[in-house]
């Protein structure tokens, strides 16, 4: 909304001089109206704000407090304040680092691959006749609508190296891939499935972005003899940048919180190679009932996401 030209504020009608009876009344009426005008917005926001505070802000504060105490739900002792002990435990916990590494690997592969493919497909689909675009967009968006449980269960069978679909098909070409049995391959397989599953969202957003770029720019470029590649580089890409930033940030935040895919397809295996940080936090807090430690790790993850998001904004703004 910030770019929008502000509408002229209606001038308030204040009484000219003197406290005449009518003037006072007018003034009061105006004051009431002013108050209403100032606060009525909040009234409209109230339903959301109530939910926002009770389900986001309060848990956030509570979570921060949790991260500073030694709260183990099964322990008979009341939670005691331990300061930053939970945080320092994470620093010395090999499982934490393993999970961070797995998460980093996922983000490092899934984000560039996902956005790159989405951008490529968005441009390709956008170049098709308008009538057919909807069909392709729907096709690519479709997997996103499948719940992760269903998609995950199907893919984990696809991926089974001995009894799965992919290797049965690849066998004709004498290829055998250790999809989920190899510690390096497992994460790649997860990324591949995730890209298939999630690509619809960035694709739809990017396509909407492409539609906003005035056709006249392309026409001008065509007259000047710019090739398709150059048109992409000098028109599409720069004008798409704000949307791209939005998509990348969204994708990074989402990728750091990857959970469903690994939880269902590999259950964190083999040998914890795909147990990502969210999975470890979940285990710690809800299976091992170590709320304090789980909360501390969540805050570390939060900090990491914030840092990455700020970096993004920086990079995209500078160019």
């Amino acid at each position: 909304m910030s770019n929008q030209t502000p509408l002229p504020e209606p001038q308030e009608q204040l009484p000219a001089v003197g406290p005449t009876a009518r003037g006072v009344e007018n003034y009061r009426g105006n004051a009431r109206r002013r108050i209403i005008r100032r606060y009525s917005g909040y009234l409209f926001l109230a339903p959301y704000l109530v939910l926002f505070f009770s389900f986001l802000i309060l848990p956030l504060i509570y979570g921060f407090w949790l991260s500073l105490v030694d709260y183990e739900m099964l322990s008979p002792e009341p939670p005691g304040f331990v300061g930053l002990d939970n945080y320092s435990e994470a620093m010395d916990d090999p499982y934490f680092w393993q999970a961070m590494k797995a998460t980093g690997l996922y983000v490092g592969m899934a984000v560039p691959l996902g956005i790159g493919l989405a951008l490529l497909m968005a441009v390709l689909i956008d170049s098709l006749p308008q009538k057919r675009q909807g069909f392709y967009r729907l096709m690519i968006f479709m997997p996103t609508m499948i719940t992760i449980t269903v998609a995950g269960l199907v893919w984990r069978w696809f991926y089974h190296s001995e009894f799965g679909l992919f290797n049965a098909m690849l066998e004709r070409f004498d290829i055998w891939v250790p999809w989920l049995t190899d510690t390096t391959w497992a994460m790649r397989s997860i990324v591949l499935m995730s890209v298939w599953w999630t690509i619809g969202v960035p694709l739809v957003i990017l396509m909407a972005g492409l539609k906003q770029i005035p056709v006249s720019y392309y026409e001008a470029a065509a007259i000047d003899g710019a090739t398709g590649y150059r048109r992409f580089l000098y028109i599409t890409f720069p004008l798409l940048r704000p949307i791209l930033l939005f998509v990348v940030v969204l994708s990074i935040i989402g990728s750091f919180q990857v959970f469903g895919q690994t939880f269902i397809i590999t259950e964190g295996g083999p040998e914890l190679a795909t147990r990502v940080i969210m999975h470890y936090i979940y285990d710690t807090a809800f299976n091992f009932y170590r709320m304090g430690y789980g909360a501390a790790m969540s805050w570390i993850l939060f900090a990491v996401i914030i840092v990455f998001s700020l970096l993004q904004f920086r990079i995209f703004r500078e160019r």
Partner: peptide
């Protein structure tokens, strides 16, 4: 027995 795979070998 084939190389072990923690999940879904039952399908075999």
């Amino acid at each position: 027995a084939p190389n072990p795979e923690a999940i879904d070998s039952w399908i075999g």
